[in-house]
Design a protein around this nucleic acid. Sequence first.
DNA 1: CTGCGATGTAAGCGCGTGCTTACATAATTC
DNA 2: GAATTATGTAAGCACGCGCTTACATCGCAG
Lengths: 200, 200
Amino acid sequence: MPEHEAEPRSRRRDSAATRAALLDAAAELFGERGFDRTTVRDIAGRAGVNQALLFRYFGSKDALFAAAMARRGRELLDDSPAEQLLGRVLRQMLDNESLKLIDHPMYAVLRSSGHDHAATAIRQELGEEYASALAALTDAEDARVRADLVLAWLLGIALLRSVHGKEPLASAKPDDVAGHVLRAVRVLLERADTELPPAE
Amino acid sequence: MPEHEAEPRSRRRDSAATRAALLDAAAELFGERGFDRTTVRDIAGRAGVNQALLFRYFGSKDALFAAAMARRGRELLDDSPAEQLLGRVLRQMLDNESLKLIDHPMYAVLRSSGHDHAATAIRQELGEEYASALAALTDAEDARVRADLVLAWLLGIALLRSVHGKEPLASAKPDDVAGHVLRAVRVLLERADTELPPAE
DNA sequence: CTGCGATGTAAGCGCGTGCTTACATAATTC
DNA sequence: GAATTATGTAAGCACGCGCTTACATCGCAG
C-alpha cells in the first residue's frame, strides 16, 4: 500500500521521489567507493532512474555530491547533548555490524579526499559543526585546537577501521576501543593548569 | 658537472635514472592529487620522460603507485628507534612549511582511499610495520589495538591538517599540537590495570 | 478534446583515460 | 662494421566517462 500524504496526485510521475532516489543512491555509492570511482550511470542505475534525469535535477555530478552530503551531515549532531556527543559518535562508528552507517557523509568524505569545491566546502562546514560541539567540552584556551584533534582522531579511526579494515582495530570490541579513546580524550581536554571535574 | 659514480657509462641513455625520475614524479603527484586524479601523462610529463617508458618499466599505473609507496614508506621507520618514532612522525607532519613532506606515501594513501589497487598490499605492510613499532611502546595486553589507535590519530591529523587545511588545527603551533598528542598518547599506552594518577 | 509544460527515455557526442604498437636511435657484442 | 639489444619516441586504439540532445508520454488547465 503506497503512502498517501498531502499529495493525492499520481505516483507514476513524481519528480520529488526521483530526486530522493537519486540522493539516496548517491549517498550510498559515494560512501562505498568515493567520488571518483562512482559513475553517474552507477547512481542512476541503483536509483532505478534514467541518468538524464540526474542532470536535469542536479545539473552535474559535483552538485549531486554536494546535495547528498548536505542532506545527511547533521544527523548525529542534532539530538546529542555535547557531553554525550563523542561517546555517541564513537558508538555509531564502532557498533554497527559495519554497514549500518555506511552512507553517512563521513565515509564519502574519507573516500573522496582530493576532491574540490563542493566536497571541501562541505567538509569544512561539517568539521566546524562537530568541532564546535566538541570544543564546548573544555574551557581551555585552545579549545578549538583540541577539538580539532578529537575530530581528527575520529576520522582516523573511521579511516583505518572501516575504510582500510586494519587489524586488529577493525575487529576490536567497540567497548574497549571507546574506553581507550574516551580515557585519552579526557586527558586531552583537561585544562593544563587545573584539576579535571569528574568525567562525564 | 654531472655526477660520476661507479657507472662511467654514458648518461644520455640511463634506464635507472629514468626509473628514478618516474618514481619521484609519481610520489609527488600521488601525494598532491591522489591516485585517481593523477594521470600517467602527468607523471611522465613531470619526470620529463616519454610515457611509454612508464609502462615499459613498471607495467601499469597501479604497479607504479605500489613501487613509489614502497620506496619511501620506510624512511622514518628505519632510522628512528621506537621511543622516538611517534615524536619524529609528529614533528615531520607538523613542522614542515606545509610542503616539505608532501611526497611521503602517507599523503598518497590519504588522498587515494578509494579502493583496491595493487597498492593495497604494500599499504597494509607499511601499516603493520608502523603499528608494530608503536606497539612496542606499551606492554598492555592489547598493545596492537592501542597502537592502531595511535596510528589512526596520526593519519587523522595529517588528513585534517595537511590534506584539508582545517583551521585552527592547520595553523596551530607544532609544539602545542605535539604536546597535546603526546600527553594523551601517554595515557593511551599505559597499562589499563595499573592505577592512574589522581585524575578521575 | 486540445494544447502545453512537466516528467521520462534512448541514443550518442566529444573527450581524456590507461595502455599498446611500430618505429628510430644509441650502446654493446662479435 | 654488422648484428643485436637497450633505450627513447610518436601516434593512436579502445573504452568509459560526464553530459547533451531529440523525442515520447503523461497530467492537467482551458
